[in-house]
């Protein structure tokens, strides 16, 4: 009994913390395609971001972008520009905007919006109402992209 109660309190606390700090997909505020503020308030983890970038079930960014930093992965797509030196070309706020919803930066782009949970039609049931990446995964990917410097 005691245990259950304690557990419930922790769970509620966790949820309300997330509510307070995580920006929900449709609440992300864009200025000229960029997103200045972190979506979570928690610093992004570039190591996890690198994994999300390559993972076919998560970012799958490699489907469309080549990236020399991931040369151990065998197949790199060429639909979008190479990721090498991307942090030299874009600021963190711009990259956060591009990853969250690239359509705000590149009108009519094929690149999916990774942090929206509505506005698309006929999603498979398993994905309905969800964003492709979580807020923290977006932050992790942005932190990773910020490491891709050539200059």
């Amino acid at each position: 009994m005691k245990h259950t109660l304690g557990f419930a309190v922790v769970a509620t606390l966790g949820a309300s913390m997330a509510l307070a700090e995580e920006v929900k997909p449709m609440a992300v505020s864009f200025a000229d395609g960029t997103v200045a503020a972190s979506l979570t308030g928690v610093a992004g983890d570039p190591v996890n971001g690198r994994a999300v970038f390559a993972n076919r079930k998560q970012g799958n960014c490699l489907a469309c972008h080549t990236n020399s930093d991931l040369s151990e992965e065998s197949f790199h797509g060429e639909v979008g520009p190479p990721m090498d030196g991307v942090a030299d070309r874009w600021s963190e706020a711009e990259l956060r905007g591009i990853v969250s919803n690239s359509k705000m930066m590149f009108e009519g782009t094929i690149m999916p919006a990774f942090y929206i949970d509505s506005g698309y039609t006929r999603p498979l049931d398993d994905f309905a109402g969800q964003s492709i990446l979580t807020a923290q995964q977006v932050e992790d990917v942005v932190a990773y992209l910020m490491t891709l410097k050539e200059e």
């Binding site: 076919r56 799958n60 490699l62 489907a63 469309c64 065998s74 197949f75 790199h76 797509g77 060429e78 639909v79 094929i110 999916p112 919006a113 506005g119 698309y120 039609t121 006929r122 999603p123 498979l124 994905f127 309905a128 969800q130 492709i132």
Partner: peptide
């Protein structure tokens, strides 16, 4: 017409991007 969570149309891949690699 764009569909799905990835929000793409047939044309995005088969008209705008034929000839390039999409992953493998």
């Amino acid at each position: 017409t764009r569909v799905g969570q990835l929000d793409m149309a047939c044309s995005n891949c088969h008209e705008d991007n034929y000839g390039v690699m999409i992953r493998a």
